[in-house]
Amino acid sequence: MDANETLRREVGATWFGVGLPADALDRLAALGHLRDVEPGTVLLTEGTPTPELVLLLHGRARVAEREPGREELTLMTVEAGDIVGWSVLLAPMPATATVTAIEASRVAAFPGAALRAQLAVDPVLSAAIHRQALDAVARRLLATRQQLMDMYRPGGPRHGGAA
C-alpha cells in the first residue's frame, strides 16, 4: 500500500474524513502527507502564518495561548479526528493559538498553498472541506460558550451548592 493510499485510509477513518465524498477524499489525500510527532512538537505557532491544515489521526495536542507575564493557558485539547490550523483556509490569517503535541501523535498535514489552490478549482472538495472546518470551528465556539457560562458552577447541595 503506497503512502497516499495509507493516508487516504487513515483520514477516511476519522470524523473529518467520514464527512467527505469518496472522490473528494481521493483528491485531498493526494495533497497531504503523514507525519509522526513526539510529545512537545509544536504544530502551529500563535501569530505566525499557518503553514498547513493538520488532521490529528492519533494522540492529543494542546491548543494554548500565551500572554506576557502569565503562564501559557491551555484553551482546549484536540483529539484524534479533529483538525488544527483551520485558519489556513482564510489566508493570510495567522494561527490563532499555539498547538503542541502532548502525546506521541500521528498527523496528516495538508500544505496551505496547495490546498487553497485545489479548493479554488474543485468546488466539491471545497464545499466538503469548508463544511467540515465550519463544523469543527462551531464545535469549539459552543465549547467556549459553555466554558464561559462556567458550566460546572455548583447548582445546589446535592451537586455542590450550599445549604
Partner: peptide
Amino acid sequence: VTVDRAGSDWTGPVGVVTQ
C-alpha cells in the same frame, strides 16, 4: 476525564464534557 481549564502539567483532555 476532561477539565475546562488546565496548566501545562495536565496532559489529559481540556474542553467541555460533551466533547
